[in-house]
Structures are given as C-alpha cells and as structure tokens.
Design a protein around this nucleic acid. Structure first.
Lengths: 340, 340
DNA sequence: GCTTGGCACTCGGAACGAACGAGTGCCAGG
DNA sequence: CCTGGCACTCGTTCGTTCCGAGTGCCAAGC
C-alpha cells in the first residue's frame, strides 16, 4: 500500500522531470498528480526513495531528480510503452512504403525515428554476414576480365571486377556460374565460404588458376566487413535543443556520432524486433556518455535480427514514447525487408 | 605609405582575432606585431578602418573585430594561401592513395579535411550527369529478368534489375549488349539518353517491347539525380569547440548539416580545383548562417569540376590555412580519380 | 501507525552596486 | 605625421544582500 504510493511518487517524479527538465518538489508533485495525500507525506516517501538511491537532490533545498537507478525502475516496472497515435502509424507506413531501395529504407527510417522521438537516431545497415545469398552472377567483360555480382537477401548488391591470370572460355564460365549458384544460393554468407573454397578442386589444373582467383574475390566480397559497420545518423539538430547541463555532454556526443564503431557499440547486440532494449546513463560502455541513454532494438526480415536501430538522448528522455517509436519503426522496416 | 600601414593593421587584427577569439586592442597589436609605430598611431588607423567599415567594436571601450567586409579584404588582398607542411602533404597523399573505391575516397577526404582545418568538412559525390559511361553490362538472370549494370568514369556502379514483358533470347541480348555499348560508351550521361531512345526502333516489333523496357530502365538509372545530391559531412565534433557567441549559430548549423540540399547550395557551383572560393558570412545564401563562412572548390578527373568539396566554419576562421587544405585535398582527390 | 500542518532552516540564484581595468578618442607638442 | 598624456566609457568581476523554493522534523490528529 505504502510501497505502491512510493512507486507512484517515483513515476510522477520521472514524468514531471522529463517534461519540465527541472528538479521537482513535493508541492508541485501533489498539484500536478492526483496522489490524494499531502506534500508532507510525499516528502516522507521522497526521503525513503532517496535513501534507496532512486532519486537525488542536486543540492539541499532543491527538488529531486531521478538517478539512473530510478529511471531503470521506471522503465522496467512503472511505465508502459505508449501506443503511437493512428496518425503516427500511418505516417510511418506511408513513408516507409514509398522507399525505393535498401539505401532509401535506411535513410527514411533514420529521419522518421529522429522526427518521432526528437532525438538523435541511428540505424545500422543489415549485417552482411548474417544475410543469405540470393543469386550470383558471373559476367565476362573481356577475355581475361569478369564481373562478379552478388545479390543478397536484404537487397544489397556487391560487385567486383576480377582480373583472371588466364582466360576462361564462355562455356566454362556458364558452368562455373551454375556451380556457384548451386553451392551458395540460400546459404548465409558466414557459412558460404566453406563450400566455396572447395570449388577450384573440381576443375582440372588448367582452369583451377582462374577459378581460384574468382572464388577468392567472391569470398573477399562476402567477408567485406567494412560495410557491416555502416550506420546512418539523423536528427543531430535535436542535440541543440538541450539548453542546460546537457550541452556539456554535447561534445562527446558529437564525437561519438562521428565514430561508427562507437555507435555500433552503443547500439549493442541486435535483439528481436519486439524486445526493446534500454540502456541508461552509466550502464552504457562509455564514461563520457554517462548522461545519455540508448533505446534500441533489432530488425530484419522474418523477425531475424539482422541489424540494430535506435535513438540516443539524454537520460532525462521520454522513455515510453521513445520505446514505442523505436519498436514501431523496427517492425515496419522488418516488414518492408520481408516483402523486398 | 600610410595606406599600406592601415592594411597591415587590418591584417594584424584579423590574425590576432582569429587566433585569440577576442577583440583586439591597439596596445596588444603593437606588442605582438612589429608595426614600428605607437599604439596611438594604430588607434588612428583603427578609427579610419572602422569608418570604412572593415572593423567594428562590439561595444565602446572594447577592442576591434573584423567585419565581413574586413575578412573579404583580408582574403582577397592581404593573405597568401599558407603552404602545407611536407608532413601534411605526405599525410594527404598516403591516406588518399590507400582508398579502395569511390566511397572510400570520399569518406577519407572528408575526414582529412576536417582534421586539417578543424572545421566541419563537406564533400559532394561526383555529379552523375557530368561523368561518362565506361561500360554497360546486360546479364540475364531468368528468362524474363535481366540485370543491367552501368559503370561510370568516376568508378561509380549503378545496377537495376529489369522485368521484361516478353523474354529475350540470349543471342538477342548479346546483340543488344554490343549495340548499347557502341551507342553510349564514352558519352556523358546527360547526352547518352538521346542516342538510347532511338535504339528500340532498330528492332522488329516483336522485340521492341522488352528492349524499350530495358532502355527505359537504363535511362532511369542514368538520370537518377537522387544520388547527385549525395554529400558526406565530417568533423561535426569541431562545432563543439566554439565556446562563445558562435554556439548560438550551432543550431542552424546542425540543421543545415542534415539537409543535403542546403549543403549543396552552401558549397555553391563547382569551380576549377585550383581556384578556391570563399564565401564570408552574409555573402552566403542563408540568413541563419550569417556568422559562418564557406571555403570550397571543385574537383574531378582532368581538372574538370565534377563536384565540390569544402569546409564550413565561423567567419572568424583561419582562411589561409583552410584554403590551403581545401585546395590540396581537392587536387589529390582529382589525381586519384584521374588514375582510377 | 500512517498522515498532516506547522515551523525553522538551508542554500542556490537573482539583484544590486562598487571597484577595476582594458581600451578608446582627442589634443597638444615634437 | 607621429606620439605621450589624459579623461572618459563601459563591460566584467566580485562581494553582498535578499528572496523563496524546498526540505526535515516534530507534535498533533485520524
């Protein structure tokens, strides 16, 4: 009973602080929320909450603000993911369905997320190594030069021009083409290489050279983790909205946004699209970003988490709203990838 | 004689203000520069310079700061482009030569520029419509589905999967392939379409349908101006370095950096790589960015300006240094594109 | 045993004013 | 035309005061 009210007080504090950005006192709390008790009672509860480490005072005789631990409790037990308005849902659907290719999907998602949450949004490109091969094409350009094109399940296309040590005849290429496709279509990239390396052995000595070169190029293209690290950032202008203390954190934030590796670490492991991960303040991997939180989730076709997207903002953010937006966008993107 | 000294004073003011970020007074001026005259004399010159609108006082009894007009004079007549150190040249050369493809070149350039100038760097992707066609490839995927690959002089590769209304036989495709290449290889994209539209007419009625579809896809790919607007931004963290008044300008800056269209307008028309353009404060197209300057230049293979790159920073920037960096990077990038 | 009104206390922030000093403009003499 | 001198301006800094939001605690009440 009493315990319940204490939690209600914590919830009220978080909500008020997030919306006003100012330490909240006992009086204004009872004014704004129908707690049914007097300020004095609330004060007692606040003292207890402070004792337990959920809230803190910036200085004596100021209101209370939530600690990271307080936010954690709020996110885990006190809040429900705020459903989006139908208008928002429609906006997401129409915007994302208008996308014309993978790049465009990613681009639009990032904008969308930034707009919905008014925070900085981050979207990672689908991870190469987890996607599967849809098709391989081998195109002779000249006698000693072929173009290898790799089409992946996510719609990504990788191509390489390969210089052959000795020419391959056209019918050999056609043969190679079918064998390649037989070997790796449908395979995950991570697994496909294993089958490929054996392929040159199926050819006689004369042709083994060029085939090996070609296979090597293909393996190289598949293991090109450079593009695995691609992330797109949007809504940086939202950083400027934080007039007060947070602008001290703006610099490390901007620095982080330049380093894709850092961002990927921030986003963390891709989780299932329906489970939204929240990392609050010091829980994250970077000291400098102790006053920022990350709300993220995985996405990908068929509920398989190929990559991660999310938002980054001050610990004092609207968690229920952000979580809703992140989850909704992730679901829609996943659906789009399903269809494409 | 006197006129010369006045200019020397202006130069000194600009240099000091840029390095200290504080209004500069007559006393400190004579201390730091060997002007050979007394503070009182300098004061007279300063009064004259203020009269002419080159400098101004933030308030009575503060030092002077340059106006946009003052910077303009400085850039046009009082400064020489500061040569880079050999170490810097080497750094540029080795970094850019390590690039593996067009994306990488652009990526690295932007980093380089940001690092050298400690400002926000912007690099536009080579404009599609001005580059030429290097090769076209047509690859049958299934009987009614072909992949069209377009390789451009800048190293960019565009591909489209086309669904044909009726199948094309393999020898027809081979024929189409040679005709396509004969028609447009070496042409500028902007001119290539003209020849292409006539191509379907060379075929008999039966095959005209699929050929027309394919040609249409090709033309669409060539006129895909979406990617013309691609720009890459780097060094945003440098924005955080401006502690004082400039942080009022940080918000419009961040907003501008999100809008590629705005950035392209900021960069302006691509000029020859050897001619660096400087746009100071209010000279630019955006009211909100009245306290920022842009230093930019064109780049591209063979001194043909395919796109623009440059830096954006506060009007109080190190112009000679920035101009040197921008010019040097543009030249190296141009050279790389020449070779690739 | 919880809740409540009352009350003394704390302390950050705003408001005010004085002292300071960098920098100026002007003038008379070299 | 340059220079030293001098009175003047005005933004900045620093100390002081004052105010009020907010607290903790206590004794009384339900």
């Amino acid at each position: 009973m009493v315990e319940d009210r204490k939690l209600a007080v914590l919830r009220a504090i978080v909500e008020d602080y997030v919306s006003t950005q100012e330490p909240v006192g006992s009086k204004s709390l009872v004014d704004r929320h129908r707690l049914g008790v007097s300020p004095a009672t609330v004060r007692n509860d606040m003292a207890a909450l402070e004792e337990e480490g959920f809230i803190t005072q910036p200085h004596t005789s100021a209101g209370r603000i939530p600690t990271d631990k307080g936010y954690r409790l709020f996110v885990d037990r006190l809040s429900q993911i705020k459903p989006l308005t139908p208008a928002e849902r429609r906006a997401i659907a129409t915007l994302l369905e208008g996308a014309i290719d993978l790049d465009d999907v990613v681009q639009r998602s990032v904008r969308l997320l930034a707009q919905l949450t008014r925070q900085v949004a981050i979207v990672q490109y689908p991870v190469l190594s987890r996607s599967t091969v849809r098709h391989v094409e081998v195109v002779p350009l000249t006698t000693a030069r072929v173009l290898v094109v790799l089409i992946l399940s996510t719609g990504r296309v990788e191509q390489r021009v390969v210089e052959l040590p000795t020419p391959l005849e056209d019918d050999r290429i056609a043969d190679l083409h079918t064998r390649l496709n037989r070997t790796i279509v449908g395979e995950r990239l991570a697994d496909a290489s294993a089958g490929l390396v054996l392929l040159p052995d199926e050819y006689d000595a004369e042709q083994r050279g060029p085939v090996a070169v070609l296979v090597a190029a293909l393996i190289e293209a598949m293991s090109d983790h450079r593009s695995d690290e691609r992330v797109v950032v949007g809504g940086t202008a939202n950083l400027a909205r934080f007039g007060d203390g947070f602008d001290l954190a703006i610099r490390p934030m901007l620095e982080a946004l330049e380093e894709h590796v850092v961002l990927l670490k921030l986003l963390g492991e891709a989780s299932s699209p329906s489970k939204v991960t929240v990392r609050i303040g010091h829980e994250g991997p970077y000291q400098e970003l102790a006053s920022t939180s990350v709300v993220s989730t995985g996405y990908g076709p068929g509920d398989e988490a190929l990559a991660t997207l999310g938002i980054v903002g001050p610990t004092r953010m609207d968690y229920p709203g952000s979580m809703a937006a992140v989850r909704a966008v992730a679901r829609y993107v996943s659906r789009i990838l399903d269809e494409g």
